[in-house]
Design a protein around this nucleic acid. Structure first.
Lengths: 343, 343
DNA sequence: TTTATAAAAGCAATCGATTGCATAAAAATC
DNA sequence: GATTTTTATGCAATCGATTGCTTTTATAAA
């Protein structure tokens, strides 16, 4: 029926001539209820179709078995996989997930965090938006007694638990791979430098060049090329240089790498012979392109699991202890045809 | 600080020598509070860093501004887009989303629904899992005064609000397109027939054949081919027939279509000349394959928005009124090279 | 059988916000 | 200035479950 009230422990108590406290104890299975009445209560609860009201329970217990997740975009492969990984763990623990997307907007990110604070969630798992401005909202999370785990895109300046990808190492490895394949002028497509992940990937790029005594050529480094279109645009510019690159590391994403490939194909530039292309993220399509794309797998679902496990295994116990606050999930370079100049 | 208690309306009241009820009224902006004290309360609230405890509020008000979503897999393109669309609308309305994934398991779907009932959510948006067994759990949702909207994969036998894709029409259109292109023996890769969407797509296939006086050849209809691997496997079988098909409609997904393409490429079969291929869902990769894949775009994000709007615009008012309970989001056939025999 | 002990059940306060009703204060009317 | 009306505030119950404490009942020991 639509509007009938839900059965409460009082309904059960009344029916059995008992006190609500006994019903509560019986249902939580705790203690001090005789087996016989316990069985009776459970039976009646089932008959009356009883369900615990978790609002009341949470209010009284002062804790909410709920975790809030804030990501830039739910429907982005990386994040939907992270969420899936998180959900797998939290489901096991009987926790609920409240999901918000910031849509890459700082303002909205702040609002999402606000909502989650109001909801009194136990912990917030968060990856910051592209136009991240300051971290006041993150600080206020702790003020309200809520825990915080940052993942992937994090604010380095904050001393919170974090789950990270080895962006720098992965970028280093990717560029070194390009060098080993004999590419001489390696360009970089980079993302917004207010995001740690893009800074780190750039650092990896620079470190690899340095190690192999390659000069750093500013002209070969292109900012904000993180969509297919922007990747294509940047490629056009790069190829118009007096001395164009012979390889492009699209450190932002496989989408950008796809843009590079688009341009190469339009111009009849042979990949990987004349131009090497390396992407980032191992999107599903990257093994389907012609040629298939070399890229970096970030094990996004693993990242999600790690985030959740970090909370349950360490944070709930340690509180905010000063040890091992950062977990690294090592990514892996997936070498495919788009960079195999030496076959 | 970590363990300090959160400020409540009582803290504010005490500080201002007022009663908590006035504070509550002031904060909810309702009425009957003088401008001066209202301003004072708002100011103090900010000073004390007050946040409403929504557990308490919801408990008292008996409603929970929360919606539960159950999908087979969060990290599946279609569903993550639907969720994204849902979130966009619910966010506007100040509602929270609790997300669960059934992992295509009926048992887990039941548990998800259980959890959401306990959480006392206002409404559940649900798409059933592949091994859907019965609808007792769906019925019990209404028993607890919770609304239900089914989308995409629905249990037809239940009279609930629904948001659907025009699967049958889309499949019909796809097959008709193949016929118009001159394909003569059109095979079908179909999914588990306990899911409405696959039944409907099959119906569309059959209807199109019938309209054009094509015989229905059982050998050309393959069950449970809904992954890349299974699609490839089914294609192997089809091509081994004495009279193999000259087109394959992978009604299950673009992944299955990709499996078809794999086999064609391995065997040197020319697409679309010797074999036409049509997929379903318009996955990101479908325009990247060589040749690009003809497929059906379902407007998944739109579906999500429609689901949420259905709740806010109709259901909350009408209750369970008997009119216009079903919304259709019409999909669109995206014709690409894999079927353009006459291109 | 009586007393000591353990187990079972009841009582009542509590979590924090909301709201109908009552009262006090301010404003409007005569 | 007295009375009515409006507005502002206070009081207290309520939402449903939990839990420390007390009382009652059953069991074990003396």
């Amino acid at each position: 029926m639509e509007n009938q009230k839900r059965t409460t422990i009082y309904d059960i108590a009344r029916r059995l001539n008992l006190n609500a406290s006994s019903v509560s104890r019986a249902l939580s299975g705790n203690s001090n209820v005789s087996e016989s009445t316990k069985a009776l209560i459970l039976k009646t609860a089932k008959e009356l179709n009883y369900r615990q009201n978790s609002m009341a329970s949470n209010l009284r217990k002062g804790e909410n078995q709920t975790i809030g997740v804030v990501v830039p975009r739910i429907n982005q492969n990386f994040f939907s996989n992270v969420i899936s990984g998180i959900e797998e763990v939290t489901y096991q623990k009987g926790y609920n997930l409240i999901i918000c997307q910031s849509n890459e907007s700082y303002e909205r990110e702040v609002k999402c965090v606000d909502t989650l604070i109001n909801q009194h969630v136990s912990c917030i798992f968060l990856s910051i938006s592209a136009d991240f401005a300051d971290n006041d909202h993150l600080k206020s999370i702790a003020d309200h007694g809520i825990k915080l785990i940052q993942f992937d895109r994090v604010d380095d300046s904050m001393d919170t638990y974090k789950v990270l990808t080895g962006n720098e190492e992965a970028a280093f490895e990717a560029v070194e791979h390009l060098i080993e394949q004999g590419y001489k002028r390696i360009a970089l497509l980079e993302g917004p430098q207010n995001l740690n992940i893009f800074r780190q990937r750039k650092a990896g790029y620079l470190a690899a060049l340095k190690k192999h005594d390659f000069p750093i050529i500013e002209d070969l480094i292109r900012e904000n090329a993180w969509t297919r279109e922007l990747g294509a645009k940047a490629t056009e510019d790069l190829l118009a240089l007096p001395e164009p690159p012979d390889a492009i590391f699209a450190s932002t994403s496989d989408f950008a790498a796809l843009g590079v490939l688009d341009v190469a194909q339009n111009r009849g530039i042979k990949v990987p012979q004349q131009l090497g292309i390396c992407g980032f993220s191992n999107e599903a399509f990257s093994e389907i392109t012609q040629p298939s794309l070399t890229t970096v797998d970030q094990f996004s679902k693993e990242i999600g699991k790690n985030v959740a496990n970090l909370y349950f295994q360490k944070m709930k116990k340690d509180g905010n202890a000063e040890q091992n606050k950062v977990v690294n999930v090592q990514p892996k370079l997936i070498i495919r045809n788009s960079t195999l100049k030496n076959g």
